[in-house]
């Protein structure tokens, strides 16, 4: 009985370990990184400020720590004080080539002064869309 429970617990842990859902890195709760992108992305900093006096501006500084060129697929989402998402061109899915070890800064200005919160999604284009909200555009 104890052996069976042990095996079940081990299997559950193994399954949890294999999950491919995107996870926010604990240091940067605004980031949502896909499982494949997580294997080669190194986040250096997440920066935020204001542009044009009252528009929230957010950015992420990162680099590709793998030895091969990668393509990053990213999207900034903006939310108002009530948690509703604000649409605009600054919420589009975009792509950026990442050469090995080359530092890259990606930043966007919020579409409206109502934006008080943001989320940055970083994915690899090869990640299956079912694991994320990829494909839903702003």
């Amino acid at each position: 009985m104890q052996i069976r429970n042990g095996v079940l617990a081990a299997a559950a842990l193994a399954l949890l370990g294999c999950q491919t859902q995107p996870q926010p890195p604990t240091d940067y709760p605004q980031l949502q990184i896909g499982p494949r992108a997580q294997s080669y992305l190194q986040i250096e900093a997440v920066q935020e400020g204001y542009a044009s006096s009252d528009l929230l501006r957010a950015g992420v500084r990162l680099y590709n720590r793998s030895n091969q060129q990668q393509t990053l697929r990213y999207r900034f989402s903006w939310f108002d004080a009530n948690g509703f998402e604000l649409k605009g061109l600054a919420s589009r899915w975009e792509q950026h080539p990442l050469r090995p070890a080359e530092p890259v800064m990606i930043d966007r200005v919020a579409p409206s002064p109502k934006a008080v919160r943001y989320r940055i999604q970083l994915f690899d284009p090869r990640t299956a869309p079912t694991h994320s909200t990829q494909g839903i555009d702003g």
Partner: peptide, 19 residues
């Protein structure tokens, strides 16, 4: 068109030209 428009608006807003 979306890419070009997005680049233009982001650049306008960050440059301070419309402040």
């Amino acid at each position: 068109f979306a890419q070009a428009a997005s680049d233009a608006v982001q650049s306008m807003l960050t440059s301070g030209a419309v402040d």
